[in-house]
Each structure stands twice: as structure tokens, then as C-alpha cells.
């Protein structure tokens, strides 16, 4: 009987928004499966980075090593067969996760880092700041996305970025950096628009008015109050955009604008298009399946996330 008051407290407290959403999410088996796939991919990538950091001598890092004759079909020695130099397609596929996921990750970070603050500022301050930001993103969004991304990738390639003022010195933009910069710099528009709209709604709510009346500064209100309250939008957008970034890497690689010194799924598909007419289907298939699985998992998980965090939200 001693426990009774505690029980009551629990009931009164209810569950927080996040706990509630996560609970809903956890009940979806498919979403959990998808999450497991995503986690596995991330684990591979993190493992590769860690192994590189500590210079471990493991097979994946030696993707460039010849393991058998050229163009061996899948067999017990080489699960996904070998490529034109007799290298393991399996190792390349795993290693390829590093480039593809790194690209998608940084592109997402860049687009959020630009889109969220700009959207919040536009929605919160309105007036002139809003006009400028809206003008900027309307302009960008009126240029067809694929052209914009290609244009950025093309002009950024082989450029060096002068970051002396940051104390970093000159940074050469090669391969992978060009790709995620091009994608990131062009894809912040949607998230910016979304955040702006949401912030405008929240701005009139009591908790913001209260914060203002306490004399909180604008930046405090934006970062401590507004952004946490629209954070679920950021997560949803992040998970759904990730997929399109992985696919964008494939197209950029095909056009010769991607990472070249390390295998990426895009580069593998690009190389394998030459092999396919001969009937060497395994490299193509391995890369396609790798992309397929992560995209599927992200899509399924993103949908589930959206449904549980914000059932009313429509994201195409």
C-alpha cells in the first residue's frame, strides 16, 4: 500500500510528447526493423572510420587488394564476386557505405545548419529580414533543383576554399567535399520554408509571449524555446532527405563530379555499367542492393517517424 501515492503521481504526470511518440514508434515492427538496418549501416561506417583512425589491418580497409582472378562471379571465396582488378566487390560495397553515408550526413548537416536558423529568424523577426530570406529561397527554388546542384558541383570542383580567417588555412575541395557542399548548399530551401511557417505559428503562442515578457533575448527565445518546439520537423526532414542525398551522390558520380579515389556506391554503379553488357552483373547488383536497403529503411523509418511525431504533417 505504501506504493500507492507514487502510482498516482505517475498517472497524473502523463507521458511527455517524445515518450509518447517513441512509444507509438516502438510498436511498429517494420519501423524497428528499418531502424536496425540503419543502425547497421551506421555501425559499418563508424567502424570503418574507427579502424582507419587506429590503422587496423582488416579486410575492409584493404578493399584495393587483389583477392583472386578478375571478374569472378559470386562464390564462397568472394561473396559478391570480384571486379576488373580482382578485388572483392563485397569489401568495396561495405567501404562504399563510408563515402555515400558521409556525403548524405554532411549534406544534411549543412542544409540544416543553413535552413533552420534562417527559417527561424525569418519567422520570428518578420519584416525586412523575412523579406530577404524569403527572396533568397524563392530565388533558389525557382531554379530547377538538378541544374542547381550540378552547377554548384561543377563550379566548386577543384576549387580551394580560403578559410584563413578561421585559422584553418586553405582547404582543397576535392571529390567528397564538393559533393556534400553542392548538395548541402542547394537543399536547405525546403526545411527553411517549413521552419519559418512553423515558427510563425508558435510565435503567437503563450509560452513565447511569456518568455518575451520575462525579457528573454531573441536568440535565447529562438534557440531555447522555438527550435526545441519544432525539432520534430527537423528530425523528420533529416531522415527523409537522407535518401535523396544518397541518390544524388549516384548521379553526381555518374557525371564524373563525385568522389574518385575511394569506392562509393555511385562510382560502383558507374563502373559496372561498362561491365553489364558482358553479363558481369554482380558489382552493379551489389551497389544497387546496398543503396536499395538503406533507402528503403530510411523511407520506412522516416514515414513511421512522421506518423508518430506529427500525424498531420504532409511531406512529399
Amino acid at each position: 500500500m505504501n506504493n500507492a501515492p507514487e502510482k498516482i503521481t505517475v498517472i497524473i504526470k502523463g507521458r511527455s510528447y517524445w515518450a509518447d511518440s517513441m512509444g507509438r514508434l516502438r510498436r511498429r515492427k517494420l519501423a524497428m526493423g528499418a531502424l536496425a538496418v540503419i543502425a547497421a549501416y551506421l555501425a559499418i561506417v563508424l567502424f570503418i572510420y574507427a579502424a582507419q583512425w587506429t590503422s587496423l589491418d582488416i579486410p575492409i580497409l584493404n578493399w584495393g587488394q587483389k583477392i583472386g582472378a578478375e571478374y569472378q562471379p559470386p562464390s564462397r571465396n568472394a561473396i559478391f564476386g570480384t571486379d576488373f582488378l580482382g578485388r572483392s566487390v563485397f569489401r568495396k560495397t561495405l567501404y562504399g557505405a563510408r563515402v555515400s553515408i558521409t556525403v548524405a550526413f554532411w549534406a544534411s548537416i549543412i542544409s540544416l545548419a543553413i535552413g533552420v536558423p534562417l527559417g527561424a529568424a525569418a519567422g520570428y523577426f518578420r519584416g525586412f529580414i523575412d523579406d530577404v530570406i524569403v527572396w533568397l529561397y524563392t530565388t533558389l527554388s525557382s531554379i530547377p533543383y538538378i541544374l542547381l546542384i550540378l552547377a554548384f558541383a561543377l563550379v566548386l570542383r577543384e576549387k580551394s576554399l580560403n578559410l584563413k580567417w578561421l585559422g584553418v588555412g586553405k582547404v582543397e575541395l576535392s571529390g567528397i567535399a564538393t559533393v556534400y557542399l553542392a548538395i548541402g548548399l542547394t537543399s536547405w530551401v525546403d526545411i527553411c520554408r517549413l521552419i519559418r511557417g512553423e515558427v510563425m505559428k508558435h510565435k503567437e503562442r503563450d509560452y513565447i509571449l511569456a518568455a518575451q515578457s520575462y525579457g528573454c533575448g531573441s536568440s535565447r527565445i529562438i534557440f531555447r524555446h522555438l527550435i526545441p518546439n519544432v525539432f520534430h520537423l527537423i528530425i523528420i526532414s533529416f531522415s527523409l532527405r537522407f535518401v535523396s542525398f544518397i541518390q544524388a551522390e549516384v548521379i553526381l558520380s555518374f557525371l564524373g563530379l563525385g568522389e574518385k579515389n575511394n569506392p562509393s556506391w555511385g562510382a560502383m554503379i558507374d563502373a559496372a555499367r561498362l561491365d553489364l553488357p558482358k553479363g558481369y552483373w554482380w558489382e552493379m547488383t551489389a551497389a544497387t542492393v546496398a543503396i536499395f536497403l538503406i533507402s528503403l529503411a530510411l523511407n520506412v523509418f522516416g514515414d513511421a517517424l512522421r506518423d508518430s511525431l506529427d500525424p498531420k504533417l504532409k511531406v512529399q
Binding site: 549516384v250 548521379i251 555499367r273 553489364l276 544497387t288 528503403l296 523511407n299
Partner: peptide, 25 residues
């Protein structure tokens, strides 16, 4: 819905290459 999501997850380049090889050639 699941099939839709699955189809969205296949790279466009793979559609083209497999399509051209099998259907046309």
C-alpha cells in the same frame, strides 16, 4: 505503400541500365 517505397529506393541509373540490357538488348 511498401512497394512504392521500395521502388523509390532503387537508383535511377540501375533502372536504366537493367532496362536497356534486358528489355531492349
Amino acid at each position: 505503400v511498401f512497394i512504392c517505397v521500395a521502388m523509390m529506393s532503387i537508383p535511377f541509373l540501375s533502372f536504366i541500365l537493367f532496362g536497356q540490357y534486358f528489355l531492349a538488348f
